[in-house]
Amino acid sequence: MVFWFPLLAWAAALLIAFYMLARGPRPITAGRVVDQLLRYILVFPVGLMGLWGFTGHVFFAEQAAASIGWAPSPFQFEVGMANLGIGLAGIIGAFLPSPGFRAAVGVMMAGFLGGAGVGHLVQIGETGNMAAGNAGPILYTDFLTPLAVLGLLLVQRFLVRSPAT
């Protein structure tokens, strides 16, 4: 599941965002596309992935550590709590369309997940750790997810300033 969950979260976000656009009002504007993508990225790759990381690191610490290629550690509880905060903030941000709150979620994710992604790369380089939880899709989503949130917020900001949307 460690391999598939990040991919499924992203697939769900994209499918539901486009489904909501397809059944929503016309015309479909760039602003609505960005808003729907942002909302469902916050729900799935941010919110549910955060809650999934929390559950794994706190309640299934040995299995989570093994999937990353690590030994279990008391620090997993702290990682789990950080994931809980990110997950809850993502879900709140999905339904509280405050650009400032969403930006704060993106910055928090960039720091935590971006740092985790760098840690995965270091582990690959130094130890050759190619475990699914270290070198699989989670490695890519550690960078992709915060960049997507922050990038969409930036696009949204420019669209708000543009009278054509």
Rank of each mutant, 00 (worst) to 15 (best):
E62N: 14
I138M: 00
V43A: 00
A132M: 13
F44G: 05
V118Y: 09
I91G: 06
N134I: 02
F59S: 12
A71G: 02
L48S: 05
G47S: 06
D35T: 07
F75K: 01
A135M: 07
L113I: 08
G69Q: 11
A82Q: 14
A71R: 07
A61P: 01
V105M: 12
L96Q: 11
S73V: 08
P99T: 09
A89V: 01
G47D: 12
G53V: 04
Q36V: 05
W52D: 03
A82I: 14
E62C: 03
F54M: 15
I138A: 05
W52S: 04
L38Q: 05
F101E: 04
M130W: 11
G69N: 11
F44H: 00
V118P: 08
Q63D: 13
G125L: 13
L84Y: 00
L144V: 15
G53H: 00
G80V: 11
P72E: 09
P137I: 00
G56C: 07
P137T: 03
L37S: 05
G100A: 15
M109P: 06
G111E: 02
A64D: 08
G119N: 04
M108W: 12
L139C: 09
F112R: 00
T145A: 13
L42H: 12
L38T: 02
V46G: 01
A94E: 05
V107T: 02
M109Q: 13
P74H: 08
